[in-house]
Design a protein around this nucleic acid. Structure first.
Lengths: 351, 351
DNA sequence: AGCGCATGTGTCATCGTTGACATATAGATC
DNA sequence: GATCTATATGTCAACGATGACACATGCGCT
């Protein structure tokens, strides 16, 4: 029918009142007579009026939009989970979310942040930032920034999981099953950006938990069993090549491990693929533990893994953003629990 | 520093020119003297000016935003791929994307569409709509709608893959490997919404290809081998329960099939899980083919599947939206090719 | 000199909503 | 009867960018 929505002015004209009255009726604030209310509501219905959010945002200097900067949503389902949780929380609170994937590129991330600023988003969540400078750009524009999972700045609020405790649970589980030759396949601290505040990074935390866990159980640390690198190639589609290579190397050692702790489910998938190819049965011949709990439903055998509370990370991230927008106080760092989920890929040590 | 970006007026004042001149410099249109250009550019840099997109959108009556209505991004990576492709194309063209997941709920989808209208998005893509009425709401607001993958209306432009040809390739491949007992595990046409224009639906196409393919090769159609239902439970996390149940039923038949064609990778994953649990080796004992090519990199064995050109679906969808926004003519329906990708889950028929 | 055209710049209404402010009436209180 | 308060409504200037329109100036041509 009408190819354009009516405006407030048209509604006011039709109802025979002023725009202020229409506004009061719609906002349910101030004094309105029953008669006026009815006329306005009738006019709203008759014209199929819908408020123009663009005009409102200009007038109120709020966009009711938050920016979400992701690393690569197609590569790791972790980002999908975060995006969905943020979106759900945002919609429930009357906000919109605009998503950007930087794919590891500084300059692309920068472009995204500039777009966010031009849009006057009310806050930006990073999961995770490619370059701290891009996070800090926002401060200059008066827009709060929140970091999820990995923090690169000293200033932005930050929500993450307790990587150390989660990783330690994986080691304890494997040791409890009788494993003594446990390999670690994970992210190399040197390859991933560090926290400006020198908090321990994701990679450092997980690796330290492995080392401490082994030592606590009186087990040797074998350099051969520690394999560090990337979690996945950002340019690819998360094909598991890194995990495959690590597992192949481990299998070709004179004394291969009986268990592999991969600190990302995508690495774990590569490990499973290599084991499948080598004819090893999981968990009969080798046990595998992952980290994140992002792919479990898709795998056979279903993966034992350290579960991140992904939905809660997203929700908390949004809450922090809201608090910052409303200028409410909130603690600068929130740490959530990560706990082991035992499924089918771990079993008693062979022999 | 400045907690607010400068406005055009402030830039103009600083540069000692009018706002029109600043505008001309920034838009690179009309006549500008070199001197004026330099003054303006200097003022822009000095004030760290960034155009206010909200104001621009109000003035130009364009939001440079498109809405993307998805079914459930956390359940099926197919939607992730589409979202990412749409986003990439949109950003390259200077558009933003706002995503909404209806999760199968009519009323939630309706709420999303109303939000899109209030935001004055320039177009909306559905992948896929829950209710045709929600798609048609947009026509009333003068906003073009495009359907991706599945069409429920007669009016919206539509991009999809050739499901019939893709499914037929899967059957031909299995027959070529010597399989004669081929089961079909797929979506029930009765459970999924139909096209108002009575084009053959996704489910009808894939099922027809199976039937025609079997007949073309002179193979019996066994009712036991055709298992129809949902692809996955929208409320869950795509855990493969449906596929597991189908595969277990098929394995318990007096004469089980030697190959299973599952018309969705998530169904195929469930099938693989059931086979794993039953101790069947893939592809030695049974071959499995999926559809979509969304999970291949995560699985062991890597899945032979009918690949949808997901990125191209998203790109084309965006192109259609753009054409509609610019009021350019474009064909109402675009059909892309779906082709088989042979990996590790199919092999010669046993025996 | 007079005209046309290319070049360069400024003015200002407009987009639709908001909310501070002004105004008006009726009833209550002193 | 004067003053105060609660109720009810209207006016209008923002918000910031855009671009149609008007107005210059200078050059070349007849």
């Amino acid at each position: 029918m009408a190819s354009k929505s009516a405006t407030l002015i048209e509604v006011a004209k039709l109802a025979g009142v002023s725009t202020a009255t229409v506004n009061r009726v719609l906002k349910q604030q101030g004094y309105i007579s029953e008669e006026a209310r009815e006329k306005v509501l009738a006019a709203v219905a008759a014209t199929n009026y819908r408020p123009n959010v663009v005009a409102r945002n200009l007038r109120t200097q709020r966009s009711q939009t938050i920016g979400l900067m992701l690393t690569a949503i197609t590569v790791n389902p972790f980002f999908v989970g975060v995006a969905h949780a943020v979106e759900a929380a945002a919609i429930a609170a009357g906000y919109r979310v605009v998503i950007f994937n930087h794919g590891g590129s500084d300059s692309y991330e920068r472009h995204g942040v500039e777009t966010f600023i031009a849009q006057r988003v009310d806050a930006v969540l990073f999961c995770t930032a490619a370059n701290p400078a891009n996070v800090e750009l926002l401060a200059g524009a008066g827009i709060p920034a929140i970091e999820i999972e990995r923090s690169l700045t000293e200033t932005a609020r930050f929500v993450r999981v307790n990587n150390y405790v989660g990783a330690r649970a994986a080691i304890d589980h494997l040791v409890g099953l009788g494993h003594r030759r446990i390999a670690f396949v994970g992210g190399d601290p040197a390859l991933y950006p560090q926290d400006a505040a020198r908090r321990r990074s994701v990679e450092e935390d997980r690796l330290a938990a492995y080392r401490d866990g082994m030592a606590a159980h009186g087990l040797d640390l074998q350099a051969d069993y520690v394999r560090l690198g990337q979690y996945y190639d950002l340019a690819s589609d998360g094909s598991g090549a890194e995990g495959r290579a690590h597992a192949e190397a481990l299998l070709s050692l004179p004394t291969p491990p009986t268990a592999i702790f991969a600190t990302c489910d995508i690495l774990a998938v590569g490990v499973l693929q290599a084991l499948y190819k080598a004819g090893k049965k999981v968990p009969h011949d080798l046990s595998v533990v992952g980290f994140d709990d992002t792919l479990a439903p898709y795998l056979a055998p279903q993966l034992t893994t350290v579960a991140q509370p992904i939905a809660e990370l997203g929700r908390q991230g949004f809450e922090m953003a809201r608090a910052a927008i409303d200028k409410r106080d909130m603690q600068g760092e929130v740490v959530l629990d990560a706990g082991l989920v035992i499924r089918q890929s771990t079993g008693p040590a062979p022999g």
